[in-house]
């Protein structure tokens, strides 16, 4: 493989999150290295999605901090996370339903577009040039994801598998350093899963993007990820390479439902 796993880029330290009295995450620490594919697995309700929501600032943890390339964030918010190069996809696709595929992916370029309101209204030189330059970039992503044939289709009309791909495309348009994927293959058939795995590996390979993903399909996770974190009831019960995790007795008991 072309990529080389680098230093720690994202480090979570002692993160705890609760809603009202309900603890969603308890004192979780793990790190993510540059260019790696890091999976978070665990049974339903283990706190996986909450973990992603903490990383990109949708939820504010009560305790703990996030260290991103040496910078400490005790209060992350989604906008800061986006500026810092974190993109994500959503478990229940959160596309902009009233917009076309092209526009959806173009929104991913928001942070990189600088023309002000007046320039845009009059579509003066700068705004027009910028629009075209970013369109070209977006077309590259469309090519990469092989969705040229639907670029002008409103996303609401697309089948589920394609929507998932557009969701990925929108995240990629941000040219993120870290890409968070929330169950990218949930509800897909085998073929779609294969396609999606290929895209994820290609993204990681070609752009060197660090990927943190949540996935239920064990086969896929073990195949494509470098290291795996296992959560259960909001606690970390395992961390390591796929083989190490597979051999971890606690993980086995959590998955097979043996005694707690």
């Amino acid at each position: 493989m072309a990529r080389e796993i680098g230093d720690i880029i994202l480090d979570l330290k002692g993160v705890s999150l609760s809603f009202g009295g309900v603890k969603a995450l308890t004192d979780i620490s793990f790190d993510v290295r540059e260019h790696e594919i890091r999976a978070i697995i665990g049974p339903n309700g283990a706190g996986k999605s909450s973990m992603l929501n903490v990383i990109n600032g949708v939820y504010r943890p009560q305790e703990g901090e996030i260290v991103l390339r040496g910078e400490h964030f005790s209060k992350m918010n989604p906008y800061k996370a986006a500026c810092a190069g974190i993109a994500r996809t959503f478990q229940n696709i959160a596309l902009f339903k009233g917009m076309s595929v092209l526009d959806n992916i173009m929104t991913g370029r928001t942070l990189k577009m600088k023309a002000n309101l007046l320039q845009q209204a009059f579509r003066l030189g700068a705004a027009e040039r910028e629009e075209l330059a970013h369109r070209a970039k977006v077309e590259e992503i469309i090519d990469f994801l092989e969705i040229q044939h639907i670029r002008k289709t409103p996303v609401g009309r697309l089948p589920y598998g394609l929507q998932k791909r557009v969701d990925l495309g929108r995240a990629l348009a941000m040219e993120p350093q870290i890409l968070l994927l929330d169950e990218p293959m949930a509800g897909m058939n085998v073929e779609e899963k294969q396609d999606m795995s290929r895209f994820i590996l290609d993204v990681n390979d070609q752009f060197g993007t660090t990927i943190v993903l949540i996935e239920h399909d064990m086969g896929v996770v073990m195949d494509i990820s470098d290291r795996v974190v296992v959560l259960d009831y909001g606690k970390k019960i395992g961390d390591g390479t796929p083989d190490e995790v597979r051999a971890n007795p606690e993980v086995i008991s959590a998955y097979l439902g043996a005694s707690h």
Binding site: V58, A87, F96, G98, M99, G108, A171
Partner: peptide, 13 residues
């Protein structure tokens, strides 16, 4: 309009 949380996540204020 369509999905405000997702909009914020991709960097729209």
């Amino acid at each position: 309009r369509d999905m405000d949380v997702a909009a914020e996540v991709i960097g729209i204020r």
